[in-house]
């Protein structure tokens, strides 16, 4: 790597850092509302209806077809994998009983994004 390239990389990361600093405060407040919206989608019977199959803290009469939604960050260190699981679990396991919320358009991409943010907090 040449020096100029390193400089460029440094400059770029500096810009990214700067960008992060600028965005961070707004992102934090937006983040919590996104999580709230995600929770709404998870609990709604006509949307995610996650409680039909999963135990979630604070959710009433959950089913147990799927595993309880706990320690999600530990189970899915990679958020993208969690999203993929919600989008279509049958790609990993063809016999998965989980509804392919993305592939079958039960939820919109935006709704799934919000749902992932919420589920990741569990």
């Amino acid at each position: 790597m040449t020096i100029s390239r390193i400089r460029l990389a440094q400059a770029a990361s500096g810009l990214v850092l700067l960008g992060t600093c600028l965005v961070a405060p707004a992102g934090a407040s937006e983040g919590s509302s996104v999580v709230e919206e995600g929770k709404g989608i998870a609990f709604s019977r006509s949307k995610g209806n996650c409680l039909a199959c999963h135990m979630i803290e604070g959710g009433e009469s959950p089913g147990n077809l799927g595993p309880p939604l706990i320690a999600m960050k530990a189970r899915y260190p990679d958020k993208a994998k969690l999203r993929a699981q919600i989008w279509d679990a049958t790609t990993v396991n063809p016999d998965s009983a989980m509804v392919p919320f993305g592939l079958h358009r039960v939820l919109t991409e935006e709704e799934i994004d919000k749902l992932v943010e919420y589920v990741w907090t569990l």
Binding site: L51, A52, C53, S61, P62, G63, N64, L65, D95, A97
Partner: peptide, 11 residues
């Protein structure tokens, strides 16, 4: 078959 005995909500 796969999920017999488990519950969907309370069913």
């Amino acid at each position: 078959v796969q999920n017999t005995g488990l519950k969907v909500r309370t069913e």
